[in-house]
Design a protein around this nucleic acid. Structure first.
Lengths: 335, 335
DNA sequence: TCCATTTTTGTGAACTTTTACAAAAAAACC
DNA sequence: GGTTTTTTTGTAAAAGTTCACAAAAATGGA
């Protein structure tokens, strides 16, 4: 392997001068710079990252923990994050975990093994962080969940206002004249997102003067097609005179619609459905799905910007809300 | 930071004995092993990867290049690959590139910067490899494209037989009685996958005694909803008496269906559609999409296994075909 | 007990880079 | 020209591991 020593020998300068050129220092003569750059190009030399980071005791990597592996929105956000970080000299280490894995434990593991300079957390429950997060004293951004109640000085967050957004979804159903509305979401004990959206639902029910019986019209399922399918079956069985359903993700909405159709309900004539996330899928689905659009690009870019702000510029923590948007579709019918 | 020296001092043994325990060597006494493991646990010590890899001049990382960023099948495969590699002591570096980026250049860049021990290539065109791949003399597996014609000794591949699978899709349309069949795929000049599937289409047309006019019934688009939507519009305009369409991905099929519906065609009554990939989406779409199911899990696991075989066991290159499956749906009507 | 083996442990060099510090060279001043 | 200042360069230590080799300890046989 060609090392900095080879470049030094070949260019006639010392190792440290080569290092200076490599790191774009300005305390080196134009002559030396030119000659060394020639040799570097000739030998296709690229410095060894391990040696570099060993000396600087700096991994230049950032960890991404994704909780909820089949979440399409997360997939889009992760992709965007990767694209952004790729442009810098950082590496990204992505770790996927199941909806019910212990995120804090995984985070600690990741930190011990890879020693990242910062952490990006998709879908984690801020409440859990109390448990053991103080241990990993790293800049960290919680993406898609607001952590403004947490008092870790290095924990930022970027998220959609889930309460308001879910309320907006259910409001839309009430405004279309629906009275018997079912909710299909995650486990509010485990998923903080589900918990918040549930709160939003409650608010809407309250505001519309409707009592809400969670045990009756809240059905929990995982955020996947199949699980939503089965959840919808249970929900409609318990509550057969439903005229509308709010599903807490587009994927769930689609699973629910398939279940309803298989039971010969027509969408939206018999039952209206609204989803959440606003992925491409919602727009192309049949019927075009009414949904709440989250700005996944903004979520991704802001979280990376904030994290780098904390790591490199020692900026303060930030809690940022990214606006959402109601997207009308063909899956809601006025009654 | 706690280092191996601290553990050595604290346990009363030397650095090298600690190192031996850490690497599960068996030339160390049970006493020492026990004592050292205690101290390691107490201090939550994890060896510094940079130092380790520097000494071993071994990055223990594998690079994944993904060409075609919005390909849902690739997303699933990558996820699966990440999950597999996560269990080993390797790191994975994923690099996404656009459908029309230059993959070889990107591969070389990745190799120079990260020095991975092997490469996994999703959606690359084997033809391009001639250009500059010999330079990066690394074990490499082309996933979803067969490279049995390439004679690089360290280039393996795992793929679905695209020719046969596409033929199977078009056969299904012919067998349902269709005569005027349109094809919606990628650019056969640039996308090798599209090229192969196009060949499969040709074979089917030939076998059914039908002439095939690519300029008439082959419409090229990118593998995304929106692009397929516009492609379908053009296709139906050029060829208005179409009764069936084969779209080269499920996403494209769905984009096409939306375009057709917007022009008041009914699916499948007026036009039958068959997709490709067999993602969950196809099963839950409305109408349930007929498609060709690729075994994405097998593709992922086999490619990782083969790559590790080449890296660690110095095994020979392998070209492996993973079987596909025809999945019937509601989007095809017999006539 | 002594010697030959085997098992266990320690020493110190090596991996490649960065960087503090020192030294040399060049420039600027009188 | 001599002195000071600035610019440019080199030397050598350091980062945290692994590993070849040597040394020490334990074991076995006689």
């Amino acid at each position: 392997m060609v090392t900095i020593k080879d470049i030094a020998r070949e260019s006639g300068y010392s190792v440290s001068t080569v290092s200076r050129v490599l790191n774009h220092r300005n305390d080196v003569s134009p002559d030396a710079k030119k000659r060394i750059e020639e040799v570097v190009a000739e030998y296709h030399f690229v410095p060894n990252n391990n040696a570099k980071h060993l000396k600087q005791s700096n991994s230049k990597s950032i960890g991404v923990l994704v909780k909820g592996i089949s979440n399409m929105l997360f997939a889009s956000i992760v992709e965007e994050i990767q694209r952004m970080i790729e442009k810098t000299d950082y590496t990204v280490v992505v770790s996927y975990l199941d909806e019910d894995d212990d995120e804090v434990e995984q985070a600690l593991l990741l930190c011990r093994e890879r020693k990242p300079l910062g952490l990006l957390f998709l879908g984690g429950n801020p409440e859990y962080f109390k448990k053991g997060f103080a241990m990993v004293d790293l800049p960290c951004v919680l993406v898609t969940n607001l952590a403004d109640k947490m008092d870790f000085s290095n924990l930022s967050s970027v998220a959609t206002d889930d309460v308001a957004a879910a309320k907006c979804a259910v409001d839309a159903l009430f405004e279309a004249g629906h009275q018997k509305i079912g909710i299909l979401g995650g486990d509010i004990e485990k998923s903080y997102t589900s918990h918040l959206r549930f709160e939003g639902c409650l608010e809407s029910f309250r505001e519309h003067g409707r009592p809400f019986f969670p045990e009756l019209c809240y059905e929990k399922a995982r955020f996947s097609y199949g699980s939503a399918y089965r959840g919808m079956e249970r929900l409609i069985r318990k509550y057969p005179d439903l005229t509308a359903v709010f599903a807490m993700s587009d994927v769930m909405a689609i699973g629910a619609i398939r279940a309803l159709r298989d039971m010969d309900y027509r969408i939206p004539e018999d039952i209206s459905v609204i989803g959440f996330d606003g992925t491409d899928l919602a727009e192309y689905y049949n019927p075009k799905l009414a949904t709440i659009k989250q700005q996944y690009q903004t979520l991704a870019t802001r979280s990376v910007e904030i994290l780098f702000g904390q790591i490199e510029l020692k900026k303060d923590r930030v809690h940022e809300i990214v606006p959402f948007e109601f997207v009308s579709g063909e899956s809601i019918q006025k009654i």
